[in-house]
Design a protein around this nucleic acid. Structure first.
Lengths: 142, 142
DNA sequence: TTTACTGCAAAGGGTTTGCATGAGG
DNA sequence: CCTCATGCAAACCCTTTGCAGTAAA
């Protein structure tokens, strides 16, 4: 890779036409490095570097990034989580430890889904949210 | 069918071990007859029959039904919607008219998903939420 | 310099809670 | 009868809004 890992968020922000502020960089870094964090979790992680930063700024940044397609908001019962992976995939949600991991091994099935809804219901598929609830490998008996 | 349509909700409630009150019957009827309503929508529909009924009672009933597996809560950005169809299916969400319709023609794909997550990530799938965003047949140009 | 982001406080809105009353089994 | 549902109001908490100050480009 030509760029350092730490420059990735800056590049992504700039490319979307957004102003690159230190606060935004921190938020972008956290949302990209963590697994589907909430705004509060990003806030907690970021306030160490910017003690004066407000939760409203975190929301503003995450909403701006959502509007630009850089992250995808996932409403859950307790709060909205933000997914930095905006390409088609499934979210594996462990009901024991709560961890959410991306699963890419089903992109072809999402393609089939597109055909099915098109032919079966005349529905033109644009995007999808696929949450799979169950038990992850760490939480299984063996 | 042996039972009248109107007795369905009562039977479902009783079978789950829940007390059958007139208010609960009304809530159960609405959530089963409507397409993924919010608590507020159920409340609006039910208050015609029970003017003294409170929104808190609607929430209490829907949460009780959720706990018993009679409905499935679907958190969205604006509010939680309740799905009376608890068997595996996809929710077709039209981004133009907002209508949400069930799509059952993908149960086999959900089965494949189970195998994929099992073999690909050691993940034991229990339940899923599949929301498909797009344009429904009514909203398409022909 | 211009435009947009930050930060703080207050408001908004969906959902829950507490408690007294009332009804189902 | 005993337990649980109802109804009302207030509280909760996540999220948004308004606005003055400030920094990116």
């Amino acid at each position: 890779m030509a760029h350092s890992v730490s420059s990735e968020p800056a590049r992504v922000l700039r490319q979307a036409g957004l102003r690159v502020t230190p606060q935004r960089l921190a938020v972008a870094r956290e949302v990209m490095n963590r697994q589907h964090p909430t705004a509060a979790e990003v806030f907690e992680a970021v306030r160490g570097q910017f003690p004066t930063m407000g939760l409203a700024t975190v929301y503003a940044t995450l909403n701006t990034m959502s509007r630009c397609g850089l992250v995808k908001p996932l409403p859950f019962a307790d709060a909205v989580r933000f997914d930095a992976n905006v390409s088609p995939h499934a979210n594996l949600i462990c009901t024991h430890c709560g961890r959410i991991t991306d699963f890419e091994g089903c992109i072809d099935l999402l393609g089939q889904l597109r055909d099915r809804t098109e032919q079966g219901a005349g529905f033109a598929l644009d995007a999808e949210r696929l949450d799979l609830y169950g038990t992850c490998s760490n939480c299984r008996p063996q």
